[in-house]
């Protein structure tokens, strides 16, 4: 399972484009050190779609911002390796890293409306990087911006290229972010909840566009989302995060069919149903650990209905439980087919 042990390849796969090894991120705060990401390893091949799901606050965004070299230090501390084409992004000079960002790896941020600059027109923001990198004229940059706005289905792009973000709806801002990320044809697109502000028809158009870019240019996609329907329909492989770690990973069909970690199972059971069954929704009992106070042993143990003594003291490692599927739970084998 590559998500677990990047060194060991079970299936014959192309060399990874991105290889993350034991990535850790923590923050200094007035109340002590907060560990946001506690050692994750995974890799990504060209053209692949990797989904990341999991608890709100489990380190999904922080982990990906670290990969992009965007965690400010202090207060942040990042360790581990992020290998792109064999070079470690974390130790390279900021100049090289900036070159990589945008050109090779692009990111769509979670909070589209606050990630945009309120005092620049959307057209300028979409084409700015393109204009600087490709050294083209204003007029050509504007043409590019309009073309990209059309691609992400913003209506009347030509008339609205000169609008400011506050004149756009939430979903239109999100599409501006997507257009910006696509401007330079990146090899890897990291998309942090890219479609939360989009209705399902526009979401489908955007996902189709991304799939096209993957097919045509071999772009790899990392998709963070809470939308399990979107995960089921678009990704090949998914990782489930809880309290800063990967607790389960595997092919998406397996995750839905035989979810193994109790957290994954609780998550799947919590989905509201489309058929409108009424009554209270199922939610996992208890609360996630407070920042800076990670429980000993298995981080999920205070909320786990099947915990045993050993869970309180011994941390379970991610290990293979079936072909391609790995879980970090002491009882993974025993409880798998419940």
């Amino acid at each position: 399972m590559r998500a677990m042990q990047p060194y060991e390849t079970l299936d014959a796969v192309p060399a990874p484009l991105l290889d993350i090894r034991d990535l850790r991120v923590s923050f200094d705060t007035p109340h002590g050190l907060v560990k946001a990401v506690g050692g994750v390893s995974w890799s990504l091949s060209p053209g692949e779609t990797l989904g990341i799901i999991g608890e709100s606050g489990s380190g999904k965004s922080v982990g990906l911002e670290a990969i992009m070299g965007l965690i400010k230090s202090p207060p942040g501390h990042v360790s581990g390796q992020v290998l792109f084409d064999g070079r470690d992004v974390l130790t390279m000079a900021e100049r090289d890293r900036r070159q990589l960002r945008g050109e090779k790896i692009a990111m769509i941020f979670q909070d589209a409306m606050s990630a945009l600059n309120p005092s620049l027109t959307v057209g300028t923001q979409i084409a700015e990087v393109y204009r600087l990198r490709r050294k083209c004229s204003q007029a050509e940059a504007e043409r590019k911006a309009i073309e990209l706005m059309d691609r992400v289905k913003i209506p009347s792009a030509k008339t609205r290229v000169g609008c400011y973000p506050h004149e756009f709806s939430g979903g239109m801002c999100q599409r501006v972010m997507i257009a910006t990320a696509l401007a330079l044809n990146p090899q890897i697109l990291i998309a942090d909840e890219p479609t939360t502000a989009l209705d399902v028809t526009v979401q489908r158009q955007i996902m189709t566009l991304l799939a096209e870019l993957q097919r045509e240019d071999g772009m790899a996609l990392v998709l963070i989302t809470h939308d399990l329907g979107l995960v089921a329909e678009t990704v090949d492989r998914a990782m489930v995060m809880y309290a800063g770690r990967i607790v389960e990973s595997g092919p998406v069909d397996a995750l839905f069919e035989t979810p193994t970690h109790p957290y994954t199972r609780g998550l799947i059971r919590s989905m509201p149903r489309l058929d409108g069954a009424s009554g209270a929704l199922h939610a996992i009992g208890g609360t996630p650990p407070a920042a800076g106070r990670m429980p000993r042993g298995c981080a999920f143990h205070p909320r786990c209905e099947q915990r045993v003594d050993r869970c309180l003291t011994e941390r379970p490692n991610l290990r293979m439980v079936a072909k391609g599927q790995a879980a970090a739970c002491h009882l993974a084998e025993e409880t798998r087919h419940d």
């Binding site: 608890e55 709100s56 939360t196 502000a197 809470h226 919590s270 209270a280 939610a283 996992i284």
Partner: peptide
Amino acid sequence: SALDVSVQAQVVN
């Protein structure tokens, strides 16, 4: 929209 389905269920409840 930014909540995992379990927290979302908690908030909706």
